[in-house]
Design a protein around this nucleic acid. Structure first.
Lengths: 121, 121
DNA sequence: ATTAATACTATACAAAAGTATATTAATATT
DNA sequence: AATATTAATATACTTTTGTATAGTATTAAT
């Protein structure tokens, strides 16, 4: 893929970058925005898979928010809800390939945050 | 830097990643979250530097939101407001080094968005 | 039969984010 | 003197996001 800046300079005549890039960026923002999405994804990366584990692992989240966010993440194909038909029933939330790959984005975000802090101080 | 997943496995005993990483991630989220921050940064990368240019370049943004967001981005050292004391006065918003470096994060986000769309379809 | 655990949902509310519309202050143009 | 341009700010409002608290359904344990 070309970089954003290259695309920009290539497309100066139109003064626009491709619509597919704008949509891709919007998709990514929608997936990670809000207070709880990244904490949930981080917890799942840590192997916390059950509703109760997540409730305990994520400070101050309420069951209502956890339920709501899990549903959204499932709709966006970031996680999959697996029902294991045992007694008692076991429910696990697992990251999809897309979800797992967010770890790389998280790395870049952490990296930027650390560098930015150095720049500013 | 180590990756998020490596850190996680290294620190399984504590079941936590370093607080500095959590803060760095929160910083990054604060800088880019909301409806207008990335469009503004993208416009500045395109060389749209004046209030009016930005108003025209960013579809549907109101002067109120542009003014508010520019102030926040300035407070976060992502942009600098430069006053050129000509007549008429010229005001330019310019990306700082931190601001420019967000282009790389934007690239990664676009890349993730494109790949995710392929995964899902 | 009572209590507890898991995995939620319902209702009401508060706070944050964003929108719509009007207005301002300084200067320049006609 | 009236109008236009640039760079905003003010006020009121709506929408979205998040919180607080309580309750439900299923199953298991005592």
């Amino acid at each position: 893929m070309n970089s954003f800046k290259e695309i920009i300079s290539q497309e100066e005549a139109e003064q626009q970058c491709p619509q597919s890039y704008v949509m891709a960026l919007t998709d990514t923002m929608n997936v990670i925005s809000g207070k709880w999405k990244l904490p949930i994804i981080a917890s799942l990366l840590k192997g916390k898979n059950r509703f109760k584990d997540l409730l305990e692992n994520i400070e101050k989240i309420t069951p209502r928010m956890l339920s709501k966010e899990l549903k959204e993440l499932e709709m966006n194909s970031i996680i999959a809800r697996k029902v294991y038909d045992q007694t008692p029933v076991l429910i696990k939330y697992e990251l999809t390939a897309s979800g797992e790959s967010l770890a790389d984005l998280i790395d870049v975000m952490i990296d930027w945050g650390l560098t930015h802090r150095n720049n500013v101080l």
